[in-house]
Structure formats: structure tokens, C-alpha cells
Computed example of a mutant assay.
Amino acid sequence: MKTQDGSSAAEKDPAQWVTGDEPMTGPQASYLETLAQQAGEQPPKDLTKSQASRAIDELQQRAARG
């Protein structure tokens, strides 16, 4: 899906998301829990959608390096 500026929604900075301040979604929470377990960490709680997206990116990068 393309945004008004021509970029895809997946490429848009989470800080720019219209709904970024809403609580993270169930799928985000589930994926964060999985990634955190794989990294041997506690999953973060009570994040917004944009915070959860950043946390997912960070955990994925750590997993790729490990």
C-alpha cells in the first residue's frame, strides 16, 4: 500500500504513524514476546504501536547478529 507521498506504509517512520500513540496490537505483543524469549529477555509491556515497532526492529537486529 502506498502513502500519499509515494512511499509504502511499511517504510514510514513509526513516529509519523497517525495511530502510533495507540496501544500496541495483539500481533505486535505476541511477536515481541517471541523475539524477547529468543533473545533471553523479558518482553516489553505497555508500549504504543510505534514503540512496539521500534522494539521489534531492535530485537530482530540483535537476533540477526547473534
Rank of each mutant, 00 (worst) to 15 (best):
M1C: 06
K2F: 13
K2I: 11
Q4C: 02
Q4P: 01
G6Q: 12
S7T: 14
S7D: 09
S8P: 00
S8Q: 12
A9V: 12
A9N: 08
A9T: 13
A10Y: 05
A10R: 12
A10K: 04
E11W: 07
K12R: 15
P14H: 00
A15P: 07
A15Y: 02
W17C: 08
W17A: 03
V18P: 01
G20R: 06
G20A: 05
E22N: 11
E22Y: 04
P23K: 01
M24A: 13
T25A: 07
T25S: 14
G26N: 07
G26M: 05
G26A: 15
P27H: 06
P27Q: 10
Q28A: 01
Q28F: 09
A29N: 05
S30T: 14
S30C: 01
S30F: 06
S30K: 14
Y31N: 09
Y31G: 01
Y31I: 09
L32T: 10
E33T: 14
T34F: 12
L35Q: 05
L35T: 07
L35R: 09
L35I: 02
A36V: 02
Q37Y: 02
Q37K: 15
Q38T: 09
Q38H: 04
Q38A: 15
A39S: 12
A39F: 01
G40D: 03
G40H: 05
G40E: 09
E41K: 13
Q42A: 15
P43F: 06
P44E: 07
P44L: 08
P44M: 08
L47W: 04
T48N: 08
K49G: 00
K49Q: 14
S50L: 09
S50P: 08
Q51S: 11
A52H: 05
R54S: 08
I56L: 11
E58I: 08
E58F: 03
Q60C: 03
Q60H: 10
Q61L: 11
Q61H: 10
R62L: 07
A63D: 00
A64P: 04
G66C: 00
